[in-house]
Amino acid sequence: MRLQAAIDRVTVDRAAEIIDQTHGCADIIEVGTSLIKDYGLAGSVKVLKEKYPEQCILADIKTCDEGEYEFRKTYEAGGDIPTIMGFSSVSTLKACQKVAEEFQKEYMIDLLEVSDDKLEILKKEFPEAIFCVHLPSDDQGVGLEELVKHMCMKLTGVEKIAVAGGVKLENIDLMKRYGIDTVIVGGAISKAADIREAAEAFAQEIRRQK
């Protein structure tokens, strides 16, 4: 199981400070959507990748159109894992898949508001993708356990599943039970009084053997 630390709604300098404090704990650093909107790919993803070249960086660009262009620009900026919304057209998804194959990189499909019929298409056409079960941030973590249980039944056969949305330390056992590949943690790390301590606690819990 991988730990992804999501960083959003801060300055790039503050993002760098958070990366310093999560070093050795977070397998993936997520440069959040608002951070990218505020500073652009060049001012956020590119800057942070150049500063931390060994760090795997997910760029939460939330592509829903112009797939080839946006994915290419993200990879060229140093992003390792761009995101695309699962409700996007299949042609847009395939364009993203093609660019990911070209760069030999991962990509994530965000399942926010994806219908059951569309989910079956995604499973069939994009088996190599990371599928992100996403509880909206506006829900403030309410209903996460029920969503994970429900979605994991529908995602049978999917190799890589990520979970985002109000994840807390006490949720890690649930993630282990359902074989989640990537746990995405936002405020529980980035807004903690002691970021290093919080990151270490998540990393230890994820790596703890039952």
Rank of each mutant, 00 (worst) to 15 (best):
I19P: 09
D20P: 11
D20I: 04
D20K: 13
T22H: 12
T22S: 13
T22C: 15
G24D: 09
G24M: 08
C25G: 02
C25F: 14
C25A: 14
A26Y: 09
D27Y: 02
D27V: 05
I28M: 08
I29D: 01
I29C: 02
E30G: 02
V31R: 01
G32Q: 11
T33P: 11
T33I: 11
T33H: 05
S34F: 14
S34I: 13
I36P: 10
I36R: 00
I36Y: 07
I36C: 11
K37E: 14
K37S: 10
K37C: 11
D38P: 01
Y39R: 09
Y39I: 02
G40D: 09
L41D: 02
L41H: 00
A42N: 14
A42C: 12
A42T: 14
A42M: 13
G43V: 06
G43Q: 11
G43N: 07
S44D: 12
S44M: 09
S44A: 15
S44R: 07
V45C: 08
V45Q: 07
V45F: 04
V45G: 06
K46R: 15
K46F: 07
V47R: 14
L48C: 09
L48P: 09
K49D: 05
K49M: 02
K49W: 06
E50K: 14
E50L: 09
K51F: 03
P53D: 11
P53H: 03
E54D: 15
E54C: 11
Q55Y: 01
Q55H: 10
Q55A: 10
Q55E: 13
Q55G: 07
C56H: 07
C56F: 06
I57H: 00
I57W: 00
I57N: 02
I57E: 00
I57Q: 02
L58R: 05
L58A: 13
L58P: 07
